[in-house]
């Protein structure tokens, strides 16, 4: 099963190497990894999608906790959450195909961000399933280049994964 971990880390140099090194030497598989700063500049948030059964996930979480720079870990998958990923896709498109591609973009609420003589570059955000479907729809036109950001995720409603809250269950007012 796939789990999405929200990992808060101290914004220190080398922290990404520590996390990546841990996954590789212990033989855990990362499906995707996205890192960026949070509302607190001293803290970064990594969203790690990891594949594994409960035992693997427990070990991943505990081993991550052993890293001094890791402050807090939440498995958002055990709760209600929203997740998003952004993709940029450059497809071959001569003038005759542009209309069709723009229709597909419309359906997926994607945006055209660049237009070349023989290519269109599209931007789309959504969850895994939507991004995959979008990619499949464009494949017949010839995907020249594709880049995904990796997933980011957040708990729904009045629940938080930041430093000042204690786990998922924030008191609902």
């Amino acid at each position: 099963m796939r789990h999405t971990l929200a990992v808060l880390v101290e914004n220190n140099p080398g922290v990404l190497a520590r996390v990546a090194g841990l996954f590789s030497r212990r033989g855990y598989n990362i499906d995707s990894l996205a890192v960026g700063r949070t509302e607190n500049p001293a803290v970064s948030r990594m969203t790690i999608v990891v594949e594994g059964d409960d035992r693997v996930l427990e070990q991943v979480t505990k081993q991550l906790h052993k890293l001094i720079d890791v402050i807090k870990i939440n498995d958002v998958t055990v709760d209600e959450y929203v997740d998003r990923e952004l993709v940029l896709i450059k497809v071959s498109a001569d003038s005759g195909q542009r209309g069709e591609i723009m229709q597909i973009a419309d359906i997926f609420r994607a945006r055209i961000v660049d237009l070349g003589r023989r290519t269109i570059t599209l931007e789309c955000t959504g969850n895994d399933g939507k991004i995959n479907a979008f990619e499949e729809s464009l494949r017949p036109y010839g995907i020249k280049e594709l880049v995904r950001t990796g997933k980011i995720a957040m708990l729904r409603g009045n629940r938080f994964t930041n430093l000042n809250t204690n786990g998922n269950r924030e008191d609902e007012q």
Binding site: G14, A17, R18, R25
Partner: peptide, 11 residues
């Protein structure tokens, strides 16, 4: 040396 010893130090 920090890179080299990352997997064999507590920190």
């Amino acid at each position: 040396i920090t890179g080299i010893t990352m997997p064999v130090t507590k920190h």
